[in-house]
Amino acid sequence: MANSHIQALNPSTHKDLKLNVDPLFTYTKTIQFTPLHVNEFAPASTCYPIYFIKDRATGKLFSVALFGLEEKENLFYSDTQWRASYVSESMQCWPFTMAKTSDNQWSPHIDTSSPLLSNDQGQLLYKSGRPSETLNTTLQRLQQSYQQKLQSMAFVEWLLELKLLKPVRLGMKYLSGEKSIINGMYSIDASALQQLPPDALSLGHKHGYLAPIYALLASHYNLYDLIRLKKTFSKRPISSLQLIESE
């Protein structure tokens, strides 16, 4: 991991750390996306538009819930309460996350820069060298989430192989008259999906891929909610948002 704040969880290094809870998820205040696993598509689709974006370091695609319409914008964050009913696994686990160690193995890590961690107040992560009950629950959650991550990667590979993904561009018009374009997101190509041969379709069904595909397609109607939130809360309200058909 390039980020040195992200450290592999270790009972001796982190024995004095105490954890606090933040129902506002303040760490997401300037985060435009959060990673989402394929098993979360159905519940997340009730609140957020779901897309794929590319990892800057590797170029690989992964799925995310969209929180804002410009860089560093999170329209679901407020200083009184989170403006949606579903909260993603990765947000619930934070400041814990799965990351790769130097020998390329996935293991539980912790973001030591998180304000949720301190030496003075909160619940101790470890009690006499053993994980606390809260930490244990989180570790189990991370383990499950890692399995989901692998399944999500397989899901993306399947979509790519069948050429079911396409770039999406959204054109945004501000009330001021200015225009901008949201680039770099990818979605499932609904017309390519319609053309899919029956055997590919039945394989997708067998893997449980069809439900998340339809959840993702339906989730895009949440863009209306993002427009509403942006009109209500943003300093730069918009007048319209449109899908731009690819070149």
Partner: peptide, 11 residues
């Protein structure tokens, strides 16, 4: 180096 490691996407 990155292309050797990860490759490009088709899209």
């Amino acid at each position: 180096d990155k292309i050797h490691q990860y490759g490009f996407m088709e899209i």
